[in-house]
Design a protein around this nucleic acid. Structure first.
Lengths: 335, 335
DNA sequence: ATGAAAGCGCTAACAG
DNA sequence: CTGTTAGCGCTTTCAT
């Protein structure tokens, strides 16, 4: 039903190859012919079939984007930016959700491999070994995790976590709890490593909890465990967990930041809308989405293969952090 | 480089058509042959090329999803559900963002048309006429808007708006402001129509403001205009705007709900995390995403063409609504 | 500058 | 049940 290249050829009295060239190599065709072809194509409503083109060129002009959870507020800005950047370069974006499941992650890469020119693997939970294997099937760009010899865009999470710990120590906190994120998350390991080092350097103790799902519910559920540590401050794996914790704290009558200081990571929109406004480490999700697309589409294969882009993070101090209390919060809560 | 059907045929000593059948009509091939083919396919890492298949079958097994703004918290749950439902039925999902621009909307439908078996048009801003035209190019399912003769899934926004107004009237509010949403939104028109009727029926006045972008910033910016109406209650186009309004109100020292009651629509995750927790009309975004995919993939063309699925909404009363004050808020704010 | 012909990977009759 | 053949819509040599 839709017009094909043949219809256009017939209607404009040239051969299909000329029509083809008109679209894929316009400079190789006589201006007059070109405009004639173009106008009949226009009038027939002809649009090249990308799938057919892909069959022969090997380039689909599609990109796959795989995320752990579309509904996790960290991802939409990243997805939006990646989509926008893709389309600007005349690519379409497949979006797929793994539900935090590494097995689904692998299936998705395989399923998309033939239909895309590359896959953006965001915050993958699968092993590095598996990533190494999958890259044989399809060009990969990894987001939120460095992988040896593979293009990746990461954020300076270590710097962010350090800044957060230093901020807390500066406020007099000496016992800090780390509310850990999901198993398999590079970001989680990075936070832990960096926060531990920063705490030690400052003579503070850091108690790590987890692993946890990176959700508000998990943050809420971890409240008692957090209080049990007796710490006066918490650094959470992400804002969602921090916000869940904030809620549970509110229910239990623990005042933030008077009794307990809370720091998140990500700076999702929510963070400045909750009460108290969340102190957090801002991560440039949109920039990461754009950068990942750019890396994938970069012509220079050599350069791309080894590139590691690191995006800066920034501590945003709001109202959920304050001076360390004299009395630890678990005791205060009992009072 | 990747194995083709031909490689598999050669390696398993059968013809390509047999391999093809093994995958697309397994019951037509001898069990022994089948398992042999399957295992060599497995060992070669063969996966059917969907694009090539699409070329001949005419079915891509892809679906397009077009939304106004991926980062608008209303959409991620819808996208997630649509993606999950699609994949369960062995379809992949293209996601595209129009930035609330009707022109981009049209371009996207065209751009995706050849690559998908259908497009889910979510909260379209384009005209009905244009939708009618586009349906000639590709099967369409419209979400959040009924279109004559086209499959659509809508929410009972009218019922929700009525419930909201009745809730406010029941609290003694007599002057209500409607904080309008974007031009071109069917939902916006529906809210306005229904809220107006409900207010009239209850002997209350309703002042409509707008159009506005459906964003938090717009809600914030509209604060003064809202106060200027002298109303004691506000129904906003969506939660995002309501939350923006809440913020601005807080800055101006107007207490919610003591001085002004605020109701949102959507029940995004944010709504129960802001302070005060937002009273809102819950809309089933995830169910809509699933339903839309189901409708698109429904075998029965006849039935599909005329189907209109209406999903129920529900008023969720939280803390942003309360009894009408004696003194209107604009005066109180001045005091 | 344009035409002719081959073929990308696959499916779909049609034979056998 | 399996092989043969044709061709989906397009690009790309290779001629002309």
């Amino acid at each position: 039903m839709p017009a094909t290249i043949r219809d256009v050829a017939r209607a404009s009295g040239v051969h299909v190859s000329t029509v083809s060239r008109t679209f894929s190599a316009p400079h190789l065709v006589n201006p007059d012919t070109r405009s004639r072809v173009l106008s009949t194509a226009e009038s027939l409503g002809y649009r090249p079939n990308r799938a057919a083109r892909a069959l022969i060129t090997g380039r689909t002009h599609n990109i796959g984007l795989i995320v752990a959870d579309i509904a996790n507020p960290f991802f939409p800005p990243l997805i939006k930016a990646a989509e926008s950047q893709s389309r600007q370069r005349d690519y379409h974006l497949f979006v797929a959700d793994t539900n935090e499941d590494p097995v689904v992650e692998e299936q998705l890469v395989h399923a998309l491999a033939k239909q895309v020119d590359g896959v953006l693997l965001c915050s993958p939970r699968m092993s590095n070994d598996l990533i190494e294997k999958l890259r044989k099937d399809v060009p990969l760009v990894v987001v939120n995790r460095p992988v040896e010899g593979l293009p990746a865009v990461v954020m300076d999470i270590a710097g962010g976590a350090r800044a957060a710990i230093e901020h807390l120590v500066g406020l007099g906190h000496r016992d800090i709890t780390l509310l850990g994120g999901p198993r398999g998350s590079w970001t989680n390991r990075e936070i832990r490593r960096s926060a531990t080092a920063a705490a030690r350097a400052a003579g503070a103790t850091l108690t790590a909890l987890g692993p946890h799902q990176p959700t508000e519910a998990a943050g809420q559920a971890a409240c008692d465990a957090v209080l049990a540590t007796g710490a006066s401050a918490v650094l959470a794996y992400n804002d969602l967990m921090a916000i869940g914790l904030l809620e549970a704290l509110h229910e239990r009558g623990v005042r933030v930041p008077e009794q307990l200081s809370v720091v998140g990571i990500d700076d999702i929109m929510l963070s400045r809308l909750v009460h108290p406004k969340l102190t957090t480490v801002a991560t440039p999700a949109a920039a990461a989405g754009r950068a990942a697309v750019d890396m994938l589409l970069q012509d220079d294969q050599e350069h791309r293969a080894t590139a590691l882009v690191t995006l800066q993070t920034q501590l945003v101090i709001r109202d959920s952090t304050g001076p360390a209390p004299v009395t630890p919060p678990s005791v205060a809560a009992d009072a």
